[in-house]
Computed example of a mutant assay.
Amino acid sequence: MSDIAYVNGAYLPLAEARVSILDRGFLFADGVYEVAAIIEGRLVDNDSHLSRLENSLRELRIANAPAIQTIADIETELVARNEVNEGLVYLQITRGAAGDRDFGFPRGTAPTIVAFAQKKNIIASPAAQTGVKILTVPDLRWARRDIKTIALLAQVLAKQAALDAGCQEAWMVDRHGLVTEGSSSTAFILTKADVIVTRPNSPAILPGCTRKAVQTLAAREKLTIEERCFSVTEAYEAKEAFLTSASNLVLPVVEIDGRPIGSGAPGDKTRLLRTLYLEWAMNPDATG
């Protein structure tokens, strides 16, 4: 069976999926997106992702998008049609394709909606056992990072710089030397006093859905959490570090800029949080 995508009301083979070259997502990166994990054939924490999608659409003033329940139904249908037991669903909504290229919002243009599902090994990811290496890079993004836009060039460059350096992720750093977030993840450290630290939500970072869930689970375990900025130097000296994202859940960070973090191996608190998240993702009704 061919991989099935969704484009503007139609389910069709991925190889046949097309949008106009005048689509504003292609011309201006004028659109938003979401990614949700699939575990055991179910979307994980999707209400949180769809709530963030609503906010992104509102902030960019993209009107006439389908109702959120309709979007959820599209995602569920893609999971079924592609027979994905474990993986991801990607959804993108742009302002649509106008008759010409003009910066101003076009009148009467319907949004473009595309989505597809991919299989991916999430639960038994090798990176969860070995940990990942981080490269820090300057944060070159625009000021409204709380909107999940498809304008990802700065993140692409950051990720490639990390890969070129033999790392798996980049942590972006503001002009004050403070970590904002990863190129496609949220950054956390565990201090030597056993305090979990992550940057507070603001226009400087994307409000991570997995971040929020992990913080809730950590609080239930009576772990101490602080939302505050932390510097690269503080990260170097951390007892543990980890990242969160929909596509990776919780991954231990074992090295930053060539410096081992803690023992240089995945830490106990990080392993615990990954286990708790997986238990919740696979049985959310039982764990709350």
Rank of each mutant, 00 (worst) to 15 (best):
I4D: 03
G9D: 05
A15M: 05
L22K: 08
D23V: 15
F28D: 10
D30A: 09
Y33N: 07
V35G: 03
R42N: 02
R42D: 00
L43D: 00
N46Q: 03
R58I: 00
R58P: 00
E59F: 03
P66V: 08
Q69N: 08
I71C: 01
A72M: 02
A72G: 07
D73F: 06
I74L: 10
E75M: 14
E86S: 00
Y90T: 00
G96E: 06
A97K: 09
G99A: 03
R101Q: 01
D102T: 07
P106H: 07
T109Y: 01
A110W: 02
F116E: 01
A128R: 15
A128V: 12
V132R: 11
V132E: 09
L135A: 14
P138G: 11
W142G: 12
W142P: 06
A143D: 13
K148C: 14
K148I: 13
T149E: 13
L152H: 06
K159Y: 04
Q160A: 01
L163Y: 14
D164Q: 07
Q168T: 06
W171M: 12
D174V: 04
V179K: 06
G182M: 03
T186D: 14
A187C: 12
F188K: 14
I189Y: 15
K192N: 15
D194F: 03
N201V: 15
G208D: 09
Q215E: 13
Q215K: 14
K222V: 05
T224M: 07
T224Y: 07
T224D: 06
I225E: 01
E227F: 11
R228W: 09
S231P: 08
E234K: 05
A241Q: 06
T244C: 02
S245T: 05
I256L: 02
G264F: 10
K269P: 01
R274Y: 11
L276S: 12
Y277P: 08
M282S: 09
T287Y: 14
G288L: 11
G288A: 11
